[in-house]
Design a protein around this nucleic acid. Sequence first.
DNA 1: ATATGTGCAAACTGTTTGCACACGA
DNA 2: TCGTGTGCAAACAGTTTGCACATAT
Lengths: 127, 127
Amino acid sequence: MKKYSRQREAILDVLCSTDTHPTANWVYDRVRETIPNISLGTVYRNLSALSEEGRVISVSVGDGYEHFDGNDSLHAHFYCKKCGKITDVALENDYLAEAIRKNGFTPDSSVYIVRGVCGECNAKEKN
Amino acid sequence: MKKYSRQREAILDVLCSTDTHPTANWVYDRVRETIPNISLGTVYRNLSALSEEGRVISVSVGDGYEHFDGNDSLHAHFYCKKCGKITDVALENDYLAEAIRKNGFTPDSSVYIVRGVCGECNAKEKN
DNA sequence: ATATGTGCAAACTGTTTGCACACGA
DNA sequence: TCGTGTGCAAACAGTTTGCACATAT
């Protein structure tokens, strides 16, 4: 059975109190402020556990890192290729998951990523 | 300037003639049937180049591998956590990219992934 | 008591990269 | 010729894992 752990709670806290889609290492640094001797391995183990439980989503934008997201409302991710920032874009309904359900699948989590250039970087480009 | 290469064409061919969302290594094995002494490094370099050009899409489903997709029609990916299979689901319009454009971004490629259990594995589970 | 979680560090592995050579334009 | 691409192999880096100890139930 699943056992409580201070470490896992702290990790979940960090993920739910940011919208920056952090990497494992960023979470590690942040949690160390509270639990200084937590290990990176523990962070990885718990991120992976939380992700399997569906309490957290993992997002791969293609920058070589796994990003984690504690935002449980329906949204898409916009990844800017220039500055690397990931921005949430709220969605009203999950019509992709619906389309998929019609194909005989049972979806349980959705990760939507759109890549491109953000407004800020678009502006800068006009130099 | 971009130079023609037999290797890159062969890699693109492989990707466009399958719907299995292969990994770099699978592509490597496949291309070696035609170009036996191609190197894995070359495959990686070209996959990454093709991906930047937008001729190919890279899909991270969270199994530890990067998957590549030469299908250029609009579709979502369903990843089955049980059997690992990735299935394309055609979409009529890219309303997510639209939603994102309204937020001031300039999207250029979309990767939609829904995770869950596929019909086959659902059936098997009823034992 | 005991099964699960942790810290530590080493191991793993998919991917990247430097270099000398080959090749397309 | 000249700049880009390739093959090879070593290096890299994010992530995983084994082990002995700690902790929740």
